[in-house]
């Protein structure tokens, strides 16, 4: 086993860096698209949070009853997406009379197994909220799922 000459180390490092750079730039357009989608989602969340929505529909529904106001959320199925640096999740949330009645993971694009978060849709229905408990060892998937449900709820909101 001979020690590699310094010149060869530099030459090979440069070649590897060139291969990486070409790959990085060939995928840059796609990466920018993904990032802007994520930013749009974050800004939407911020806007909704500023207007005082916490995502807990049950509490809100109670307030609505007291105020005898109209429904806060539209009835129907709404799609939301959540993403982070480990992938993305799309969910379909069905609402009826300000209640979450069904949650389905419609698209799984995370780099982890879907089985990690298989119980989360049930938790959303039980808690009537996007705020589910973090699954041990699946923090990133849980976060993307929560964002996706919140995104769907935001879309269901009556203006």
């Amino acid at each position: 086993m001979v020690k590699m000459d310094k010149k060869w180390v530099i030459l090979c490092s440069t070649a590897v860096a060139a291969a990486y750079t070409s790959g990085f730039y060939s995928t840059e357009t796609q990466a920018v698209k993904m990032e802007s989608a994520q930013h749009n989602q974050i800004s939407l969340h911020t806007k909704v949070q500023q207007s005082g929505t916490t995502g807990n529909i049950a509490n809100y529904a109670l307030n609505q009853q007291n105020k005898k106001a109209k429904q806060k959320y539209k009835d129907g199925t709404f799609t939301g997406s959540g993403m982070n640096r480990r992938g993305d999740i799309q969910v379909a949330v069905t609402l009826r009379k300000d209640k979450i009645v069904d949650v389905q993971i419609s698209n799984w694009g995370m780099h982890y197994s879907e089985s990690d978060v298989v119980d989360l849709p049930g938790q959303v229905i039980q808690r009537q909220s996007a705020n589910v408990g973090i699954v041990s060892g699946a923090t990133y998937s849980t976060e993307a799922f929560t964002d996706a449900v919140q995104d769907a709820i935001n879309q269901a909101q009556n203006s």
């Binding site: 990486y20 790959g23 990085f24 060939s26 995928t27 796609q30 990466a31 993904m34 640096r85 480990r86 992938g87 780099h111």
Partner: peptide, 10 residues
């Protein structure tokens, strides 16, 4: 999904 593989954290 080459985009992810070429960027952090991958």
């Amino acid at each position: 999904d080459a985009v992810d593989a070429l960027r952090p954290p991958f």
